[in-house]
Amino acid sequence: MNDAAILSVAGLRAKVADEDLHILKGVDLVIRPGEVHAIMGPNGSGKSTLAKVVAGHPAYEATGGSVTFRGEDLLDMEPDERSQAGVFMAFQYPVEIPGVSIANFLRTSLQARLEDDEELDLFDFQELLMERMELLDTDPSFAQRPVNDGFSGGEKKRNEILQMAVLKPSLALMDETDSGLDIDALKIVAQGVNTLRQENPDMSVLLITHYQRILNYIIPDMVHVMFKGRIVESGGPEVAMELEARGYEEYRKAHVA
């Protein structure tokens, strides 16, 4: 194990919680502070599952291997504990919470990080929220809208990035954040992530994506190809370029062989 690693995944096996179906069949991955790793792969390869297992989604169950975050056993922690430890997941399909404003949602998220007898100072929070929204070039009225309720695809992703900016994680898991976005929305999301990385160069990113496109805007240090629950190839940004040109065909052939 690499002591400098912020996230270290070793031999991770995971299945759907109520079924015997294994989706991850031994995944190894090491991410160091400040690194951007992209995981690419065809539908059903397990790339999204990997992000969800790291974040603690109850629909999946780890059956073997380990996930270590800053030296702590992540698999032993509840999703809220993982969040408070510094893991953030930007959802592919963010959930609607009618009647709860983004501001209230974020205030509750920050309050949850405090001791029971501590009360988040409302003025401090307001200041932080305004500063974060300005950083991401977001209109202040956005925070008054109910979380994801009636949002366009782009607005939902913008909301995910705003949450990331407020919660300031040390590891951001981005689960197909680029899917369903037009190019303008994609740029906004990428700019947001880059802005946060500039601000905190130690923030690491695990980017799950189907397409090479987003990697033009968020430049990865490493690209991994996932296939049938394993990482089958790792390399620099060139791996993504090659994939874009050749597709996943050769992995299919190799798998059959």
């Binding site: 603690g56 809220d80 009647g99 998220s109």
Partner: peptide, 24 residues
């Protein structure tokens, strides 16, 4: 619930927030 917990709220806090939003 998972969405809210992934932002740091425990299960009860997440549930309460959903209920509060519902009756808002």
């Amino acid at each position: 619930l998972f969405y809210l917990m992934s932002r740091g709220m425990d299960e009860a806090e997440a549930m309460a927030l959903i209920v509060r939003g519902f009756i808002e």
